[in-house]
Write a protein that binds this DNA or RNA. Sequence first.
RNA 1: GGGCGGUUGGCUCAGUGGUAGAGCGCCUCGUUCACACCGAGGAGGUCACUGGUUCGAAUCCAGUAUCGCCCACCA
Length: 990
Amino acid sequence: MTEKAGKVRAAASEIGERRHGAACLTTEVAKQRRVRPLQRARARLRRERGWYRAGCACVLWGRGRFSFQGAKARGRADEMKMGRDGMAEMAKAYDPEPVEARWYREWMRRGLFGAEPASGTPYCITIPPPNITGSLHCGHALNNSIMDCLIRWHRMSGDNTLCLPGTDHAGIATQAVVERQLASEGLTRHEMGRAAFVERCWKWRSEYGDRIIMQLQRLGCSYDWSRTRFTLDESYVDAIYEAFLRWWDRGLIYRGARVVNWCPRCASAISDIEVSAEERQGHLYHIRYPLADGGGHVVVATTRPETMLGDTGVAVHPDDERYSRLVGASVRLPLTDRVIPIVADEFVKMDFGTGAVKVTPAHDLDDFEAGLRNNLEQIKVIGDNGTMTDAAGERYAGLDRFACRERVLEDLGAQGLLVASEPYTVKIPRCDRCKTVLEPLLSEQWFVRQQELAGPAIEAVESGRIRFHPERYARIYLDWMRNIRDWCISRQLWWGHRIPVWWTEDGRYAAGRNVEDAAQRLGVCASSLRQDEDVLDTWFSSALWPHATLGWPRASEDLGFWYPTSLLSTAQEIIYLWVARMIMTGLDFVGEIPFDDVYIHATVLDENGERMSKSKGNGVDPLDMVERYGADALRFSLLQQAGKNQDFRFNEERVRLAKAFMNKLWNASRFVIGTLDGTDDDERCRARAVLAAGATAVEGEPGSEPRSLWDRWILSRQQAAIETVSAGLASYDMDDAARAIYAFVWDEFCDWYLEVAKIQLRDERLARGTRAVLVHVLDTTLRLLHPMVPHITEEIWAALHGALGSEAGDDMTLMTTAYPTAIATLVSAAAEDDAGFLMEVVRGLRNLRAEFGIAPGMRLSAQAVPASRAQGLLFSDNAVAVEGLARLSRLTIAEVRPSTGEGWVSVSVAGAEAALEIGAALDLGKERERVAKELAQAETERERSAARLGNPQFVQKAPAHVVEKDISLLAEHEERIKRLRSKARALAGD
RNA sequence: GGGCGGUUGGCUCAGUGGUAGAGCGCCUCGUUCACACCGAGGAGGUCACUGGUUCGAAUCCAGUAUCGCCCACCA
């Protein structure tokens, strides 16, 4: 026995129901043995203990024995087999694993993901390239479900569709993981040297770089893998150097000494937007700086006392009268031997702290700028590795910055210069990548001027050429763009694109395509040049993604055909880092926007509404979900939640439900396909013709069969579903689309039409027509669903073709057929109205049955509907009507006959009444109660309508249809109340 | 400090002016050939709060509370 089976047994034992199985027992037996409580207990355990989370299908069988069915074993046993006659033999329960693997291989084998830039309407997505360090996380799973859904939808809709995938070298991230790997071997990159380290990174890439690609394939993504790009590919590097040189030649790239965000662990500058601030409880220290002339002191406030060692001035506001006489004077900087000036500068806030600020130009951006304005010295007291430099003084040099803080506080305290320390909330900037506390640090970096590039990028969004979805993100983008600051593009890393600038020995430099080019520009010999040590920010390469992957700077056919691309779908956290920059580079280099639409998808949170992160360990591995529930179920559950929302909680339950939906679809299809068994060649041939012609075929079907009300109803409802789904996909409301198709399949097709079909199939006159409708509706449903859940739909579609003996089936795939469009002639308000009425009748009867506990064998007469509606609407004759009503309401009904009025148990339905003659079986007390309740409700509703209609304002101002509705409601209520009152009287008389 | 999003039945979420919805969970019932990963029925909500606009507000406006996200150089 496996460990899991043991768990099942142990848990079942705990709930005291060891002896009983559930699934194989009849309800009666189950009741006797109290199995229902077991089922509930099992469900509870499943929730509480997370059995299914462990990948365990927990099935308890009867006969006093337990057996465990692992997903794999079940899959093998149930895999679909094709019978000799080509009829599909579909397993009772859908098992995604073999199906998904088989179809993905098949699509690949047939080369269906590729595209050629030839003719047609172009549709293109270049996917956000995942990091080569990565493995699929929930954000990827969501985004790629969305993109693949849209890609497949456009492909089926006839667009010339390309989805171009790729991966990102991810400078800092990859370097960090490789360094970690080295550390575990007791090595550092410095010991290895640059060349060997880069070699090692390439090795990492070849081992792990494509892992995420395989994971995307597991998800079912239909991307053109033959065009897969990597940001360090040779041709991609060409694009990067081309971009760099063009900007260089226009003077947009410059070198400068600035205070930048420095990550001591990465030993590199990082850009402002790669900083994440974290609030912490800290202190605000008040420190006394004695005046140099000995006549008093100034008190400054700071949260970072260790930086005082690098102070080169104290600033006060020019209007601050408290200090005006001190401006121009000097203070003696404690713990050092320096005398520094007091200056006036408007950046000081008079009402904060003491109104006097210590100025540390080398370690604070504000202070840096204030320092420039006031000619203050820049003294770097914290080094690149986060320890104090020699400039900090002998007593502090070499100390870690945090240790130094403690020592400075001690020393100040000892000298009586620490005036106060109050609790204070401080913002601690951390490195997005490694979470190390950042150090603002003066250093020489390369920058790109942004002002000039931002203008057109702002215009493109303002003018609506690029549209954000949801729209609110356009403003966020614009606000940032309008206040854009120069972009620090250099990183002190080894893994990445080395900056194409070469230096002479005497400190001159120039950019070039290569060293010779640079040498020529500098007019020196190439051998004397040294290339800049820094690499480019990873986002520099990503910024070129849409056009560079399509072949830029070459004027490639791909670029000509698919650029501008159609859509960028990404996470909101990289609007600035990536989206904004792609827009700038696209406009600047290609002269055209990079994409028409930007869709910002929701952030996936954990079950408690918190962000998923590795450090918190609350991440959900999408591949686990794929293994347990299938890729289709995962995709569908994510799409159900992919609308215009900012975030949503990941809920495994929803994946399970999506899997149940897959199973429902599977079994409904199994039924439909089963009905084709025994049909003649002529009928199959016609059904095949319908499928081959696609969605438009039904109406033109030659010599079409008689259509029942229900046939017309389901066809009409399907058109509505098609409309909603298409509209949802078109407006990036995937949630609406998913909901609509879910409701159509489950609530309408399965719950009603299939049940009706069972009856119609027994009527010779309706059987053929019913089968045609079943096949058509199923086929259309599969097409409609395919973009969301490609594998299962493809599998069922193949089975459908197999059942129809389609010879063409071998070469055809669902993914290459046409997407359904709504057919106006199939829409029938009358059918929807009539069917809606009958559904209400049936629901009423079911309700009676449940309320009164009518036993299945009890013979009843039903007088259901007005003759006008019953005849030819419900079913073609009385015998079928009896069966239909009986079956749909799950009652044994002997006959259906016209109403005679009194003495019946009634179901009130809008505009009519259905009734059951139950006679002695009826508990009159219960019925009295029920009628009274219904009467009370009807009266309340009547009052509500009456009150509205009694209000002249309402009648005058509300739209006509609203008033009319109330008028007809009122009449209905009156009628109903009359009936109920007479019934109540009759019951009271008994 | 600024901006944005959320707050709807026990849970997860739909619902942008006309009598509150779904799924799960809960309660009752169900052995027939699509499906127990199922079917039928039921209970359960004064839509965070306050005010306003309107004949009518979950929905629009203003404010409050609360949770979350993004941005920001108050040491």
